[in-house]
Simulated scan of single mutants.
Amino acid sequence: MAQQTITPELRRWIIEQATAGFTPDVVLASMVASGWSESVAMKALDTTLREHLRTQSAAKAVAAAPTASGAAPAQVGVPVPDLDLSRSPRQIDAGDRMVDVIATLNHPRVVVLGNLLSAEECDALMEAARPQLARSLTVETKTGGEELNPDRTSSGMFFTRGQIPEVARIEARIARLVGWPVENGEGFQVLRYHPGAEYKPHYDYFDPAEPGTPTILRRGGQRVATLVMYLNEPARGGGTTFPDVGFEVAPVRGNAVFFSYDRPHPSTRTLHGGAPVIEGEKWVATKWLREREFV
């Protein structure tokens, strides 16, 4: 097959389809049916729509439409945090340290980072969190509260923003790295997983169809990105998995995985989970970013 080129004409066509109300899944299927390879089509969609959202006052670029499977319609896309990888850097300046770029995916938008945290910062977060650990809860979107969930078998706690110097320093680093205000972030959640503990695949956004979601959104709007930071290394198991794309990130001390989602819909392909720890224990710190200031 001859090499396929993403031309200005193709970009204009993609924008026309999105503006007309077709979801990315529908546009992708149309491109593949017309002879485009799936990888080129996905790249063209991702780069074109991201740039369009940034430069065309955003949200109306991608309209909602029912999927072929009859799933709930995709929501309107919104601007999201992101890293500037336009020049394919090996490292990014995060202000007080250089952070390594290890791997990237475009759809879902996933970036694996190395050297985000120092060993001393990892130790400080674990030691400060240890006395406050309790069985992890999940957000209950039917009511807007919290609940025990059998899919989540870790123990954890929350820091408030800037609660200790290490948290404040890392929050400022993340804000610079992904171009998103510190105040739009939830407090760190630190989690510890013993052998056998896991978090089964789930989405981090709040389901718009659930009755408790409006209450949750009053605190800062939807979640639009997640950063999972690894504070130690289990001997076996405990990776962060993305089942929709067959991708797994190994838990390496000081490293992190960032992923964003511009709408609360499975079309973002951000289904993810914490694989069971097989040997040792796993500690992570999770940072969720919201559309607006989180209060």
Rank of each mutant, 00 (worst) to 15 (best):
V62K: 00
D100S: 15
R161I: 02
A41H: 02
W180L: 03
L177T: 13
A59H: 13
A134V: 07
W13L: 08
T138K: 04
S88C: 10
M98R: 11
G221E: 05
G70Q: 08
V26D: 10
L133N: 02
N184I: 08
T226N: 13
N115W: 08
A103W: 07
K43F: 01
L113V: 05
P276D: 03
P89E: 11
I14G: 05
Y261M: 11
Y199I: 05
G145D: 00
T141P: 01
A64K: 14
G21H: 10
V62T: 04
V178T: 09
G273A: 09
V249R: 09
E171A: 15
G185S: 07
L105Y: 05
L191K: 04
V284W: 06
D123S: 07
P8W: 03
V110M: 06
M126N: 00
A18I: 00
P211A: 15
H52V: 04
A68E: 12
S136F: 05
K200E: 13
P81M: 08
W36H: 11
F188G: 02
A275F: 04
V228L: 15
G21N: 10
D82M: 11
A58W: 08
G114K: 03
W180D: 01
E16R: 04
V101T: 12
D204N: 05
M157K: 04
S37F: 10
D204S: 03
G220Y: 03
G77R: 15
R87P: 00
A68H: 07
I174R: 12
S57A: 05
M1V: 12
A172N: 08
E291R: 15
K287N: 06
T5A: 01
D262C: 11
E233M: 11
V257G: 07
E38R: 15
L117R: 00
D46M: 12
L116A: 06
G212I: 02
A65K: 05
L231S: 09
N115T: 09
C122L: 09
F242L: 05
V167A: 06
R97C: 06
P89A: 13
M31E: 03
D100K: 11
R176Q: 15
A256S: 13
A129H: 01
F158Q: 10
V245S: 04
A72G: 07
R176H: 14
F159E: 00
W13Q: 10
F206G: 08
E121F: 01
Y230H: 15
L49P: 05
A44G: 04
R218A: 12
R192D: 10
E198W: 06
G77T: 12
E16F: 02
L28I: 10
H194C: 11
P79H: 12
L148K: 06
V252A: 03
Y199E: 13
A59L: 10
A134R: 06
G239K: 04
M1Y: 07
V110F: 03
R135T: 03
E120D: 15
V167N: 01
R173S: 14
I14D: 10
L177N: 13
E291G: 07
G273N: 05
P108D: 06
E291W: 08
D84H: 14
A41L: 02
I278M: 13
F159D: 00
E281T: 04
G280Y: 00
P211E: 11
P251N: 01
A71F: 14
P211W: 05
G35T: 07
E51P: 01
L137V: 09
A68K: 04
I14N: 03
A285Q: 14
V224E: 09
A172M: 03
R152H: 07
